[in-house]
Structure formats: C-alpha cells, structure tokens
C-alpha cells in the first residue's frame, strides 16, 4: 500500500460505524433532553386544554377556569412577595454581617448551618412551620388583631391555629434565606478591593464603605438573586400546602386571618390525589399557569444577571 493511497483511503468501516454510532447516541440524548424539557409546556397544554375551556365539573364547582385560577395566582404571588420581603433584608444583613461585622468563627458557623439548611427537603420545612412555628405565632397574631386591627393587613379575626399566609411566608423566607444570603455575599465580595481601601483611607466608617463601595456594585446582583428566590417561592408547594389554612376563592391581603388565600402549587398538591376527569385537566392547566409565571420570572432574572455581567 502506497502512502499516497492511504491518505485517500477511507478509514476502516468498523471505525466509521463506531464513530457514527457514538455521535448519533449523543445526538439522540440531546434530542431527548430537548424534548423532555421543552415538552413540559406541551404535555401540560395538550392534557390541560379541556380544563381551560370547561364550564362544569371544575374543582370547587368553579364557574370557569379563570375564576379558579385568579385567586390562587394571587395567593401564590402574595405569599412569595411576603416571603421575599422578609428574606431579602435579612439576607443582605447576613451577607454584610458575615463579611464585615461578626467574628470569623460566627460567620463560618452560620455558613455551615446554611449549607445544611439548603439541603433540607421542603416537606420538613412544612412540618416545622405547621407544628412548631404556627402555634407560637398564634398569640402574636391575637395581639396584633387586638391592637392593630385598624391596619387592613391585620384586620379580621386572628387565626387561633397560627396557620396563616404570614406564617407560610415566614417559613418560605427561612427556606430561601441560605441561597439568597450566599448569593448576596458572593456579589458583595466582587467589590474591588481597591475601592474599599480607597474609601477606608479617606476615613470612611464601615457603614460608609458599604454604602459607597459595596452596595452600588452589588445592587443588581441582589435584585436578580431576589428574582430567582421569588421564582422558587412562587412555585413552592409543600410549605404553603401544609401551613396555610385556606379558604376557597379568597383574595385578600390579610396576614393573620383564619381564612387565607391558597396558592396554585398547594391547591394542586391538595386536590390532585382525589381528582378525576375535568378536575385533573383543570389542575394540569393550573400547572401550566404556574409554569408560565416561573418561566417569566426566571427569564427576567437571568436577563438581569447577564446584563450586569454577573454569574448566578
């Protein structure tokens, strides 16, 4: 065999088959991955369509899909907003405390605790909120109801069990706190060392350094982190399903009432096991609504991340 021939001679058939099959195996895996991920919306849309259009047979005897979906979507948003409203300031404070204020060992202790807490399943948070937190908050709610009922947030008969949307939001806040605090710490750590030193050299106090150097560079990261946390909280199922004591079709801002709005995710989890026919289709369509909400939130959050050049 002349070398001149071998350059033009194809590689052995066995070798080419082997390469081609490896390549197609990978491509098939990629396609399955694509179909599985893109399919979520499709599967839900196809099977949930009857629920979107049905007039009878819906869960809770709802008049139509949107009559059912709107209060639940409100509940999901309200719980997530409350949860984030509690978690974000604390997360920022913790991140600043860890880097600027508390001794190293304390910061490290909290970091390790956060690592464990980030791994705890949501059903355990639900159990904790329901059995430990709710009963302790009930007297607080009673006090709030007695003294602050002029404020619409604390109006109405306070819950005796403590299983209100505020309790759920509190548990949600604890749940998203580890991730958000870690994120804040990361973006604050990106403050250029030289900027910090320049501010300190000018005689700035710690707080002034934070306000002038750390916060401006970290702001966008905190916002997108909060968005990601919101995406998680809005779709969280077990905590709201276990903690909130819901009333059907309720839309209201009351934080301490014995009747509370339910969330989409919790409603699905509570209703699905005993559902049939149109009810199932309705729940699938509700799932699609929740999917669209979290999808939008996640996309926007990632846009912000990319726009600010950060990595989350």
């Amino acid at each position: 065999m002349k070398p001149a021939d071998t350059l033009l001679t194809p590689r052995p058939a066995r070798e080419r088959v082997r390469d081609a099959s490896a390549r197609s195996a990978v491509t098939v895996a990629g396609l399955i991955g694509l179909v599985a991920l893109a399919g979520v919306a499709v599967f839900l849309g196809v099977e949930g369509w009857p629920g979107l259009t049905a007039r009878t047979g819906l869960p809770l005897q709802a008049a139509n899909f949107w009559a059912l979906a709107w209060p639940l979507a409100f509940g999901s948003f309200w719980a997530a907003v409350l949860g984030l409203g509690l978690a974000v300031p604390v997360a920022i404070g913790v991140a600043l405390a860890q880097t600027w204020y508390v001794p190293r060992w304390a910061g490290r202790f909290l970091g390790a605790t956060f690592d464990i807490l980030a791994a705890i399943p949501s059903v355990v948070y639900g159990l904790w909120g329901l059995m430990i937190i709710a009963p302790r908050l009930a007297p607080v709610y009673a006090w709030l109801g007695a003294h602050l009922s002029w404020c619409p947030l604390f109006a109405g008969p306070p819950s005796a069990s403590g299983r209100t949307i505020l309790t759920a939001a509190l548990v949600l806040a604890v749940m998203v706190l580890p991730v958000m605090a870690a994120l804040c710490r990361e973006v604050f750590a990106q403050t250029p060392r030289t900027t910090v030193e320049a501010a300190l050299a000018l005689g700035a106090t710690r707080w002034e350094v934070i306000r002038l150097a750390v916060w401006p560079t970290g702001k966008a990261g905190v916002v997108s982190g909060a968005m990601l946390g919101f995406g998680r909280a809005v779709g969280e199922t077990m905590v709201t399903a276990m903690v909130i004591s819901p009333a059907p079709f309720l839309v209201g801002f009351g934080l301490i009432n014995s009747t509370n709005p339910n969330t989409i995710a919790a409603f699905i989890a509570q209703t699905f096991p005993e559902s049939h026919g149109v009810e199932v289709a309705t729940l699938l369509a509700l799932g699609l609504v929740l999917f669209v909400i979290t999808f939008v939130v996640n996309v926007v959050a990632r846009r912000i991340v990319r726009a600010t050049g950060g990595r989350v």
Binding site: G30, G33, L34, L37, A38, G39, V40, F43, L44, V46, E47, G48, L228, G231, R232, V234, G235, E236, T237, A265, I268, A269, F272, L283, L284, G287, L290, F291, T294, F295, V297, N298, V299, R302
Partner: peptide
C-alpha cells in the same frame, strides 16, 4: 442556544409542575 436556555430555565421548574408534566406525558 435553545437547549442552554431550556436547561437554564428548567433549573427553576417548580417540582409540582414536573409532577404534572410527567402525569400528562404518561396519560398521553
């Protein structure tokens, strides 16, 4: 790029939605 986008977004998929999607797939 489409696949990356999906993977990115699906990381935030609510687990209850994953359950529903699997149910719908199996029904189909």
């Amino acid at each position: 790029r489409l696949l990356w986008f999906l993977v990115d977004v699906m990381t935030g998929l609510p687990s209850v939605v994953a359950g529903l999607a699997a149910y719908a797939l199996i029904v189909m």
